Amino acid sequence: METVLGIDLPTWWFLLIGALISGYGILDGFDLGAGAIQLFFRKEESRRIALNAIGPVWDGNEVWLVIGAGSLFAAFPLVYGTILSVFYLPFILFLVAIIFRAISIEFRSKEKMKWWRQLWDISFCVSSIVISLLLGLILGNLIQGIPLNAKHEFIGRLRDFFNPYALLVAITVLSLFMMHGAMYLIMKTEDRIFARLTVMANNTSKFFILCFMATSMATLIYVPHMTDIFKSHPELFILPIAAVLIVLNIRRSIEKRQYRRGFVSSSITTALLLILFAMGLYPNLVLSNADPQGNISIYEAASSTGSLKTMLLIAFIGMPLVATYTVFMFWTFRGKVKLEEHSY
């Protein structure tokens, strides 16, 4: 197996796709969280401020998801095809929710009627919640394993997706995004909406910690294969310990009203949880809970060596450009939100 800097090509792509998904989770996570709490704002001005806090950046944040999906298709086409065929209904609902979320943001300010704006506020909130829950549902099923036979064909039923563990992960993802979004909005607002958001950040952080504890216990009890790597490499146990400490630091930051530090901590939490997920899977990308022969490893699913090398070179050039653009975008729209004539 050809290597680059001592790491084989499939592993490089496993790491790159993981980085892209982590970037999407951190960046679009606060967008989705801000949408999920939109209806908690009762005044028109507050809703507009919250919407304009994410208005300049939400579409750029979704670029990370597009690049991640494209990279998965290019590097691991077998996994891409399997996941899409297994989760076809959740992904259809996901796309519908993304469409409604986008048009909710763009259509809301086109008319001044109260019913019109309330309609799109509801659409924006519901679509953000649906997207968050679907992401968690897919993640929970991938952690637990999906029923595949030796030919990587789905042999389960639709209702299998809605198992208790996957639903718990879905609620945990939603709670994380709501907390993440509340703290982002705190950094972008002031006065009354700032005060209301501090209460939301406090409540959503407590909700997330409860979900985090429940999901962690459920994983240890019902999904023991996710901890196998720590048995063979006990030095890696520092990562789940770090995750727990970072989660506790979120509460500490909120209590001390250090919301920027809390936002950074929730970003790190998102990345650490996805890293732990990846560590539990590696070297597999898809686990089968029906037949071990149905597992799909990165080596089985990888494209040709030539394709992986060429795309890796493009990725090493393209990813820093995307990261630079993201930093530039946030730097350009830094500071508190001020409503203007052309605001949403």
Rank of each mutant, 00 (worst) to 15 (best):
E340S: 10
T219D: 02
I138E: 10
A75S: 14
K256V: 06
P320M: 05
L308S: 01
T326G: 00
D228Q: 02
I268T: 09
L65M: 09
W331A: 03
L158H: 12
G33Q: 01
E2Q: 15
S22P: 04
L176F: 08
L139H: 03
Y165H: 07
R157P: 00
E190C: 00
P10T: 13
N284R: 14
I241K: 09
R252S: 15
P283M: 07
L93D: 02
E44S: 12
T305E: 14
V173I: 14
Y24R: 08
L285Q: 08
S307Y: 08
R196T: 02
T215Q: 02
W12P: 07
E255A: 15
N149F: 10
E45F: 11
A36K: 06
D121C: 10
G306V: 05
F162E: 10
R42H: 11
Y184Q: 04
A19T: 14
H225T: 11
F76C: 10
N149P: 05
L248V: 12
L158W: 09
S232G: 06
E2C: 04
A271M: 14
M279F: 15
H180G: 08
T269H: 03
L312H: 05
A75F: 15
R159D: 13
V244D: 05
W58F: 12
L148D: 06
L89K: 04
I193C: 00
V244Q: 06
N249E: 10
S123K: 07
G294C: 03
D59M: 05
A36R: 03
I275C: 07
S288F: 02
I138D: 03
L274E: 01
I98P: 00
L236H: 07
I298S: 08
P90I: 11
D31E: 05
R101I: 06
L134G: 00
L84S: 02
E340K: 15
S266T: 14
M183I: 04
F14M: 07
R117I: 15
L72W: 02
I296D: 04
D31F: 00
I54K: 04
M279A: 14
Y88G: 07
L321G: 07
W116M: 03
I275F: 11
N52T: 13
F87T: 05
L148V: 06
Q118N: 14
A218L: 07
Q144R: 13
V322F: 05
Y184L: 02
N202K: 14
A195M: 10
N289R: 12
T219R: 09
I171K: 00
D228W: 00
L72C: 09
L339W: 10
V63Q: 03
S343C: 15
M200K: 05
S216Y: 08
K336Y: 02
G318T: 14
L133I: 07
R261H: 08
L321F: 12
P320Q: 10
P147R: 10
I254P: 03
R159E: 08
L39I: 11
A34L: 04
D291P: 09
K114N: 11
T3H: 12
I17Q: 06
P56W: 12
D59A: 13
T310D: 13
T326H: 02
V4T: 06
I26M: 14
L119N: 07
K43Q: 12
V86R: 01
S127D: 01
T3S: 13
A75W: 15
A50K: 03
N249T: 13
E341L: 04
